[in-house]
Structures are given as C-alpha cells and as structure tokens.
C-alpha cells in the first residue's frame, strides 16, 4: 500500500525562511566585501579630493580624514602655475593636440583598416604582418631617430610631431582593432553597393564607416586618453613653456631635487585634469562597451 507523504506547512515555511535568511546573509556578506574593497580602492582618490580642499599646510599636518578648514585656495594657486602661465593655456594646448590626434586616428586608421579588411591587393598580408610588427617595437628604439628626423624638418617645438603621424595611420593597434571589426561586417551590404555602382570611397565612407561606429568610438576614447596622458612625447617635442600640456605642467608642482613642492596645487590640478577624461569616458561609455563587447574578445 502506497503511503502518502504529508508535509507540515509550518516546517516548510520555516525551511523557506531559513534558506531566505541564508541567501540574504550571503548577499549581505558579499555586498559588505564589495563595499569594503571599493572603499579601499577609492580611499586614495577621496583623500586626494579632500586634500585639494584643505589648506596646503594641513595636507600632511592634519591627520583627520575630513578637513577642519575648507578652502579653494589650492585651485586658485594651482591654476596660476607661475609667471603668466596658467592651466588655461595648458588645457588649450592639450585639447588641440587631442582633437587633432582623434581626427587623425579615426580617418587614417579606419582607411588603413578598410584596406586590410575588405580590399585585395598585392602584398596585403606582408604589409599587415609588418604593421603588426611595429606594435612590438619599444618606444626607446624609435625615440632618438624620430626626434632627429622631426628636428631636421623643423618640427620640434610644434605640435606637428604629435599629430601628423596620426594622420598617417601611425597607431597599429587601432588599425588592428578596426580591421577585426570591419571583417565581421556582412559582405552583402558592400556587394549591394557595388551593384549600385559605389566606388571604393563611397563604400568606405557611406557603408563601412557608419557601421563601424563602436570601433570608431573605442578608438576615439583610447586616443583621447592616450594623448591626454602622454607625458614623454609632449615633454621632448614641446619645449617652450607656452606650449606645455597638462601632464607636463602637472610635474612642475613637485621638486624631488630638494626644492619646495606644492602638493595642494598638485592635488587640485590633478583633480581638475581628471575631469575631461572622466567626462569623455562617460559620454562615450555606451559605444565603448559595445565596441569592446563586439570586438575586444574575439
């Protein structure tokens, strides 16, 4: 005779509550761990923000986390680096270089990528291999020959060495990124355009480029971040203080050779200088993640 198994509803509810409590506890523990990790990671940034907002003399003197005296003096003094030099000039210089570098990379790298991805021509794979090979050349090998070359053509102390190469598809990484993306686009779209009589240029400009928006956005964001943060090239090519850029100017607050350093001004200006990168990143975050999701992990 078959026995009917009966369940006590109270016992079931208690069991469910127990499981729910364990789940909640696990969630709580996980969140506590994540929040602690976040706190540890953000602590230096928060400390820097708060240090920028306290008087210079209290940065290393006041052991409290929250400033006792709040001030914007560091921003005022930091902005006016020295003499007639202000960060307004450095931002203008940085933004001009960044804008030109982005335009250059988007145009030139996408054209080179289109050629590698969609066209057939003699020596294509050799050229592609050479292009990839240039990514492995250390900067130290290129530094002196490049400097002497740019010096000989009279480009030192202008922004030309920093932007003209971008218009000549100089960044192999971005070409590679776009090649990978363009290869994944359906060939039928381009074939339809060929049937309609579209030229190479029209196919590139009207079909491939609009469809490559995520890859272009990724290129734009990384070009901006790389160029905006580039210290060494800007240091050696832009020698005149009037032409200095933000990363080079930021180094002038500290004097490890023994003179006085201005940490207040440094923190304030570092804080301000993060703004454009953060803003650019947030504005293009959607396209960027799409670009990485569709391309980055192939």
């Amino acid at each position: 005779m078959a026995t009917v198994k009966t369940y006590d509803p109270e016992l079931l509810r208690a069991e469910r509550r127990k499981r729910e409590n364990i789940r909640r506890l696990k969630g709580l523990g996980l969140h506590a761990l994540l929040i602690t990790t976040l706190g540890v990671m953000l602590y230096p940034v928060i400390w820097m923000v708060l240090s920028a907002l306290r008087p210079e003399t209290e940065i290393f003197g006041d052991m409290g986390f929250i400033p006792t005296n709040w001030t914007l003096e560091n921003f005022v003094r930091g902005w006016q680096l020295y003499g007639n030099l202000t960060f307004t000039q450095f931002y203008v210089n940085s933004f001009i270089i960044c804008a030109l570098a982005i335009i250059g990379n988007l145009l030139a790298c996408s054209m080179a990528a289109y050629a590698f991805a969609r066209l057939e021509f003699r020596g294509k794979w050799w050229l592609f291999a050479i292009m990839l090979g240039t990514m492995m050349l250390p900067i130290h090998v290129q530094l002196i020959p490049q400097y002497i070359f740019f010096l000989n053509i009279g480009w030192v102390n202008t922004i030309l060495p920093l932007v003209v190469p971008k218009f000549l598809a100089h960044d192999a990484f971005f070409i590679f990124l776009m090649v990978q993306f363009m290869r994944s686009l359906p060939h039928e779209l381009e074939q339809a355009a060929i049937v309609d009589g579209a030229s190479y240029w029209q196919r590139y400009w009207r079909i491939i480029l609009p469809l490559s928006m995520p890859a272009l956005a990724t290129t734009a964001v990384f070009t901006f971040i790389n160029t905006y943060n580039d210290f060494f090239s800007q240091l050696i090519y832009l020698t005149d203080t009037d032409r200095m850029t933000v990363p080079v100017a930021l180094r002038l607050f500290l004097d490890p050779s023994g003179g006085s350093s201005s940490f207040g001004g440094l923190f304030a200006m570092v804080l301000v200088s993060i703004g454009p990168v953060l803003g650019f990143f947030l504005a293009s975050q959607r396209l960027l993640t799409k670009g990485i999701a569709t391309q980055g992990f192939k």
Partner: peptide
C-alpha cells in the same frame, strides 16, 4: 623658458643633445 621636473629635465637634455 624651458623647464621641467628633475628627472625629465635630464632625459630631455640628453635627447636634445643627440640632435
């Protein structure tokens, strides 16, 4: 005016001297 922080100062001068 051409100024730089201590280490970059020497790095730049070395590169400038090569050219």
């Amino acid at each position: 005016r051409e100024n730089a922080d201590w280490s970059p100062y020497w790095e730049r001068l070395t590169i400038q001297s090569t050219g």
